[in-house]
Amino acid sequence: MPPAAGSAADPAIAPLTLVVGDEEFLISRALEDLRNAVLAEDPDAEVHEAEAGVVEPAELLQLLSPSLFGGRRLVVLRSAQDLPAARVQTIVPLLLDTDPDSTVVVQHLGGAKGKAVLDAVRKAKPAEIACAKMSRAEDRRAFLRSEVRRFRGRITPEAAAALMEAVGSDLREISATAAQLVGDSGGSIDVDAVAAYHRGKAEVSGFAVADQAVVGNVAGAVTNLRWALNVGVPAVVIADALADGVRTVARVLGAGPGDPFRLAPALGMPPWKVKRARTQAGGWTEPGLRHALGVVAALNADVKGAAADPAYALESAVRRIAAARSER
């Protein structure tokens, strides 16, 4: 898999790299790229990771000291912003004065916390990989295009616009979708390829929305909802799936403990559905369920003409159902 432009897997791997920012997906991927790049150069390289909040100077010194047997090392200091102030003067010099066979990576969230560490590392002029959250739509569109290139594909502007509208803002979802579309399309993504991918997801989208909503996963539920609406799944169908999901959890929770195979006939549903609903029921309370049942009852009227915008009514209902799960 080719690296993203400017990543640690570029031909020259810097002896010191700063990974800075608070986007978890980009951090994980940058560290993975660095690890893969070092191991590609030397499959026998040692890889060590340490958490800044708990690492002892002696431990770090041992990791960074020349090995008696030689060989390449990659040392990653995670969460450098958590380095205790009392240890900054001891540990930072160790990071900046390493064995020539060592590659050091310092990961920092980039905020005000631990800024002394960030400033000290930057003074050493490391290679820097930016991993900040992307709040602007144009930045996420650029990220999508870079992901498609990463997986050796191409995407038309129209396809990129359609894909961003459906996927939303989660970078992990954008990356995963880009990878799958490049593979499915043979490398060239157009509007038809995006629509075909949407249709594949839409086969279970109504139930997927409900499954995510009843476990409190707002982001997952909204993403699946957008997929469904974008490919034309009727609002009534999605509303019915949400109602079924909430009612099933309520019925299974009300039935109490017991063998799913014995409860299934009394509840009028297959055993697998009882098992799944029992898993989904964790965290629900009676007040929360009453609220959620009221939400799906009102939604039924909304999508049948009471609401001016059925899509807005659906998204609002999804968020309210997920929030109801935490009511006490």
Rank of each mutant, 00 (worst) to 15 (best):
R247H: 09
P2Y: 15
V236P: 11
V167Y: 03
L118A: 09
D302G: 14
D184H: 11
A208D: 13
R140T: 03
A219C: 13
A228E: 07
I238C: 00
E24L: 15
I27T: 08
L18K: 02
R276C: 08
A159Q: 05
A202K: 06
A162R: 02
G111S: 11
S65H: 05
Q89R: 13
V233I: 12
A301F: 14
A159N: 02
G183E: 08
V121Q: 07
R319S: 06
R29Q: 14
G216D: 08
H48S: 15
D190W: 05
L289Y: 02
V215W: 04
P100T: 04
A292Q: 06
A202F: 00
A179W: 03
G168L: 09
P43L: 02
N300Q: 10
T156V: 11
S135K: 15
P287F: 01
R136D: 09
D192K: 15
A5S: 12
A9G: 15
A130N: 14
K113H: 08
H48T: 10
G258M: 08
V231Q: 12
R35P: 04
D101V: 11
A317N: 00
A235L: 04
R150F: 07
I155W: 00
I129W: 04
G220T: 07
I27S: 05
D139Q: 12
S188D: 11
A162E: 10
I91K: 07
G53I: 07
A8S: 11
A297F: 11
L163R: 00
L26H: 12
A196G: 02
